[in-house]
Structure formats: structure tokens, C-alpha cells
């Protein structure tokens, strides 16, 4: 398979301006973003609220039009419509037809997707089973809980057995059990060789689920890659807590190793780069300090995210 066909989604330099109203100044929401998603991965499009995640997804789904730039899905320009039979989409916070039962709802989408009439009933039953709603198929959506709605929404996205699933904040507003159910569904889908594109602002979901991420802040991509590499790139550090050193000597050592310093009444604390821990300790002990503790400080995605937010703000 060629390099290109490995790329399921490709976004190149997309810009989006919104006009808040007639005569009002237009507002740039996406500042030329580019990223790509590979076949078979769970891709996390991550960023704080208002970063532009939903806007990007709506452009990919053809619901709004980019001001400039190009994007393709499965090698087709997003302006075409033929590839749409291979994708499923769960919008953010959707309210479905609440006058339908779960079964009627899925039947409607199955018919729209051209599922042959003879297969519809079976397909719908299987889908209800797959999203864990077999017991609620004949209840109106009006009576569904938020988690159940999110699951029937995923059922709707899966009705034509798509290759790629686009989920906008699939976990938001769910309790821990609801989130676990959605996670399990996403894993099942990936295990069948499909690709998932999900947006989220919840970092624990990213750490648990995603093979690859792009971080977007204020309409700009701050990082794209594996969450693990992302952590590796960050300089790890350690905290050394010690006592019994004169302030002037302490300052000398701090300057030599470029350590950050925090003093409390009893102890002093150095923050140093991981690969310098040995040298710093040696220097401290030589001058007669009593080392109280050494603690590695791993950068979490949370911190990186906050850094990215700060950088994006500049």
C-alpha cells in the first residue's frame, strides 16, 4: 500500500473566518492549520474549549466551508461526496429525533445510507447490540440518558460500516461508566482496522486512547505526533531537596547547573535537568549539604498542554 493511501485525512493550510453578523468585523478562527491522520489509528484532536476543533471537523464534514486551504478524506477532496459512504460522524452535543425509538432512528439512517431493505432489520438489531442498547431499542430517544444518546449516536455513525469515524467530544457530559463504555466502543472499532478521529479537551482520554495527537490552541496547531514522543521531547527534570548550605554557596551551585531554586524555612529545593542530577548531588555533598530527597518530575500531558496554551496565547 502506498504512503498516500495510509493517509486517511489530510488537512493543508486551512483558514476559516467567521463573520459574526452583517457589518461586523470578521474573526479568524483557524489560522492555516495542517495535519494528517494515518489509517488504523485513534487520532486525538486536542485543545481547550474554543480552540477550533469543532470548526475543523465541520469543515471536513462539508457543513461549513473553509475560507482557504484544502483537505481530503481517503484521498478525495472534501468537496466531493462519494467518499461519504465510508465515513461516520457524531456531532458535538447532538439532540437526535426524540420522537423516534432507538430502532426507528437507526432504521432511518440505514435507509438513508442505502442499506438493502432486506438487511435493514438485521443490521439495526446488530447495531443496537454493538452499542449496548439492545434492551432500549423500542424506547423513544426522549427517554434516553445522555450516555445512551451518545451511544445511539455512535450507532448512527456506524450504520453503513464506515472506514473512518469522526467523533466530536464523544466523552463530554458522561459519567465514568458512560465514558468507559464509549472507550470500549472506540477500541472495538480500531481493532477491526478502522480509523478514529476524535476531538477532546479531556487529557486522560488522550493518554488512555490515542495513538497520535494534534494539539490545537487558538486556531493554530502546536504539536502533532505520538503522545509518547510528545512527552519524550519535553526535558524531564528532578527535584532535589536539601539543607545545611550557606546561601552564597547554594547560589553558586544553582548558577553552575542552571537550577531553579525554591527556599522554605527548613529546606532548599533545586529543580534540575534529569541528566545533571548526579553532578548536582556530588557538588552539594562536597560542600556539606544534607540531601533530604531526590524526586523525578515527569512532565505530564497536562503540563505540556498548559505550556502549549501559554505559548499559543503569546
Amino acid at each position: 500500500m502506498s504512503e498516500l493511501s495510509q493517509e486517511v485525512v489530510r488537512v493543508e493550510d486551512i483558514v476559516k473566518d467567521f463573520r459574526p453578523g452583517l457589518g461586523l468585523k470578521k474573526k479568524r478562527v483557524l489560522h492555516g492549520i495542517s495535519f494528517s491522520v494515518r489509517r488504523g489509528e485513534i487520532f486525538g484532536f486536542v485543545g481547550p474549549n474554543g480552540a477550533g476543533k469543532t470548526t475543523t471537523l465541520k469543515i471536513l464534514m462539508g457543513l461549513i466551508f473553509a475560507t482557504s486551504g484544502k483537505a481530503s478524506i481517503l484521498g478525495h477532496d472534501i468537496g466531493e461526496s462519494s467518499f461519504r459512504r465510508h465515513i461516520g460522524y457524531l456531532p458535538e452535543g447532538p439532540y437526535f429525533y426524540d420522537y423516534l425509538t432507538g430502532r426507528e432512528f437507526l432504521r432511518f439512517y440505514a435507509k438513508l445510507c442505502g442499506v438493502p431493505r432486506a438487511q435493514i432489520a438485521e443490521r439495526v438489531t446488530n447495531l443496537l447490540e454493538a452499542v449496548g442498547l439492545a434492551h432500549a431499542g423500542d424506547e423513544r430517544l426522549r427517554n434516553y440518558s445522555k450516555g445512551m444518546l451518545q451511544r445511539i449516536g455512535i450507532g448512527q455513525a456506524l450504520v453503513h460500516d464506515p472506514q473512518v469515524l469522526f467523533l466530536d467530544e464523544p466523552m463530554s457530559g458522561l459519567d465514568p461508566i458512560g465514558r468507559k463504555e464509549i472507550r470500549d466502543l472506540i477500541w472495538q472499532f480500531r481493532d477491526r482496522g478502522k480509523t478514529i478521529f476524535m476531538t477532546t479537551h479531556i487529557l486522560s482520554d488522550v493518554e488512555m486512547l490515542c495513538d497520535s495527537v494534534a494539539i490545537i490552541v487558538k486556531g493554530k496547531i502546536q504539536y502533532q505526533g505520538a503522545p509518547k514522543d510528545f512527552l519524550k521531547n519535553e526535558r524531564h527534570s528532578a527535584e532535589i531537596v536539601f539543607a545545611g548550605l550557606e546561601k552564597s554557596i547554594q547560589a553558586q551551585i544553582a548558577e553552575r547547573f542552571q537550577a531553579s531554586v525554591r527556599d522554605s524555612d527548613e529546606h532548599s529545593q533545586f529543580g534540575v535537568a534529569e541528566d545533571q542530577v548526579d553532578d548536582v548531588l556530588r557538588a552539594l555533598l562536597e560542600k556539606g549539604a544534607q540531601v533530604v530527597s531526590v524526586t523525578p518530575r515527569r512532565a505530564t500531558l497536562e503540563m505540556i498542554f498548559l505550556n502549549a496554551v501559554q505559548e499559543g496565547g503569546r
Binding site: 461526496s81 461519504r84 459512504r85 460522524y89 455513525a157 453503513h160
Partner: peptide, 14 residues
């Protein structure tokens, strides 16, 4: 408003 149209238009429906 309810975004039901989003899911319909994401299918091969013009």
C-alpha cells in the same frame, strides 16, 4: 438547531 442535519449531510446525501 438540533444538529440532526449534520449527521444526515455527513452521509452520501446532498
Amino acid at each position: 438547531e438540533r444538529r440532526t442535519i449534520y449527521t444526515i449531510l455527513s452521509k452520501p446525501i446532498s
